[in-house]
Amino acid sequence: MRLDVPSDLGMVGDAVELVATHLPPGTLSPRRISFNLRTALAEALGNAIRYGNGEDPDRLVRVYVELRRDFVRIHVDDDGQGFDASRLPDPTHPDNLEREYGRGLFVIRHLVDDVAFNEKGNGICLTLRAG
């Protein structure tokens, strides 16, 4: 499944529903589709639209979903300059707990089985293993 999403934060919910409702039953449990997949994809799309594409309406976020017997893998690519995921502060540190932003990648890492980035840092790949 391939999907081009406009750089409009208001489209995130609809894009997530489109992907989640087109996954055939079997690989992921309904609960993991309902929560883990939806939340992680919303995070990835929100980051790509806001930080990657700067909410530029002329730019698209590209979503590619791989469905295999033992995993679902979702690629989310933007047109931004990328970022270094290793340099993000810990959002659970007491000094950061009351910050409004900075939890996105932390949340993604806890909801999916594997997170990978492309070399430039403007593409994220989320893998949810079967179950």
Partner: peptide
């Protein structure tokens, strides 16, 4: 509520303050 992303969590933190 089905799910909340980090932006949703962030707005709750902001409102709480």
């Amino acid at each position: 509520t089905g799910y909340i992303d980090s932006s949703g969590l962030g707005v709750l933190v902001s409102l709480s303050k």
